[in-house]
Design a binder for these strands. Structure first.
Length: 420
RNA sequence: GUGGGCGUCGCCUAGAGGCCUAAGGCGCCAGGUUGUGGCCCUGGUAUUCGCGGGUUCGAAUCCCGCCGUCCACCCCA
């Protein structure tokens, strides 16, 4: 029997790594430039943190969490999202006493027991950032602008920012009855999913793709038209800031989120291309979350960005970085006697800042040179018994075929300009 | 969780019931001079066609189940 990576998980091979690293590093640098600082929670948390934070009626909690009991009988869960952990840390470490807002970013593996398909995995990596402690439309705009900027820096084009405001609990208490009143007469004609949504997640009635439900969506009341004046003003202020930033906004009156904690601002960044699992970045405001997990009422806003989806897009648009070249110098040892000196020569080169290694395996000169060529080395340093006796080394330039003899004592100095 | 497509060497692909004890390209390994790469040539590299059953005189090729992957839905990054 052959072992395999578990369903929906993937190994990151050297060929895949540069694109991921590029995305993560651009994201970190961009976030840091706006004052966000690195944060890293444990990979698992008390399961109830997510039940209370994300919401016990959500799919994520209800059927997608990796839950387990540890040997001490504690009920834990692999994190299915990042925001709840950040908020838990904010409360736990008294970060309310730090200058507000507290602005953090993270790059974390996320775990959800879902049916895998392209762009959806059981373990994926999210870059995310959160700004906690202040309720200010300018902050919403800053968070969105950092996300937008990361996309620009990476060279992704033809993106759309979808924007909506879903109000807060009070707005929804007034709105949901109107929404239900619209759908109630047709309840029997709706799809099975929607009959469930009618009770559990009425906002989702608006983005069902089934033919049968679509027809009833026309003329349904929209949350955006039923916000209290203060909620409406907040959303308009966010729009004004985004406009000042020059970020094009596409209004998405039916955009809602699958996590219970979202309030007011919700947004997604999606590419123009068709397909299903395409959202690259999604987030929103979560003014009720910290209270829901036991802290004082505290506003917050943030987003999550899927590194694998981004990497797929970069590859599709031919923007993915090339695989890294191998070491610049390859030390070729011939014969037993030269071995130890070759080993130390490679180490000396590295210490001097020249990437270097050897062709291992005691192979023929020919095989070692071929290896040097195939791994992209710029020079081969040939050290055989003859060279050892004479205190020299053959320096062969692999881009052409020049070869010269250099004193062993001087090679490192001569090559130290060749950093790679 | 629902429906559908696909699954041959590390990678890409040929093969469509007996000619397959599975072919080609790339890659990898070795060799073609006694210490010299890139091109070229030679040889090696799957007892086996995702796994397990079944049909048949005979299966990589047909059927069933499972697993994986991809697509749509659900949901989401």
């Amino acid at each position: 029997m052959q072992f395999r990576a578990p369903r929906g998980t993937h190994d990151v091979l050297p060929a895949d790594a540069p694109a991921r690293e590029r995305i993560a590093s651009v994201a970190r640098v961009t976030a840091a430039a706006a004052g966000y600082r690195a944060f890293e929670p444990p990979t698992f948390e008390q399961a109830d943190l997510f039940v209370r934070g994300v919401g016990d009626g959500t799919d994520i909690v209800e059927k997608e969490m990796y839950i387990f009991e540890d040997r001490g009988g504690e009920r834990l869960a692999l994190r299915p999202e990042g925001t709840a952990s950040v908020c838990r840390a904010y409360v736990e470490h008294g970060l309310a006493n730090a200058p507000q807002p507290v602005k953090l970013f993270y790059v974390l593996p996320i775990f959800r027991y879902e049916r895998p398909q392209a762009g959806r995995y059981r373990q994926h990596t999210q870059f995310g950032l959160e700004a906690i402690g202040v309720r200010d439309p300018a902050l919403d705009a800053e968070v969105i602008s950092v996300g937008w900027r990361i996309m620009q820096e990476l060279g992704l084009r033809d993106l759309t920012l979808l924007f909506n405001s879903i109000g807060d609990g009070e707005d929804r208490r007034a709105y949901v009855p109107r929404l239900r009143a619209h759908f109630e007469p047709q309840l029997d004609s709706l799809c099975g999913d929607c009959r469930g949504r009618f009770h559990r997640a009425p906002l989702r009635l608006l983005d069902c793709k089934q033919e049968c439900c679509r027809s009833f969506q026309e003329g349904a009341p929209l949350i955006g038209d039923h916000l209290r004046p203060e909620s409406r003003e907040f959303a308009d202020a966010v729009r004004a800031h985004l406009s000042a930033l020059g970020i094009p906004v596409r209004e998405a009156p039916t955009l809602v989120r699958g996590l219970d904690y979202y309030t007011h601002t919700v947004f997604e960044i999606v590419p123009a291309r068709a397909g299903s699992q395409v959202t690259l970045l999604a987030g929103g405001r979560y003014d009720g979350l910290i209270e829901a997990i036991g802290g004082k009422p505290t506003p917050g806003i943030g987003f999550g960005m899927g590194i694998e989806r981004m990497a797929n897009d970069l590859r599709a648009q031919k923007l993915a970085p090339e695989e890294e070249a191998g070491p610049a110098a390859l030390v070729v040892a011939l014969g037993e006697a030269a071995g130890p000196r070759a080993t130390s020569l490679a180490a000396e080169l590295r210490a001097a800042g020249v990437s270097a290694t050897m062709a291992f395996g005691g192979r023929s000169l020919k095989a070692q040179l071929r290896h040097a060529h195939r791994t992209g080395a710029r020079v081969a340093l040939i050290l055989g018994e003859r060279e050892l006796a004479a205190g020299v080394v053959q320096v062969r330039d692999l881009s052409g075929s020049e070869q010269r003899e250099v004193a062993l004592a001087e090679v490192v100095g001569e090559l130290s300009g060749l950093v790679s």
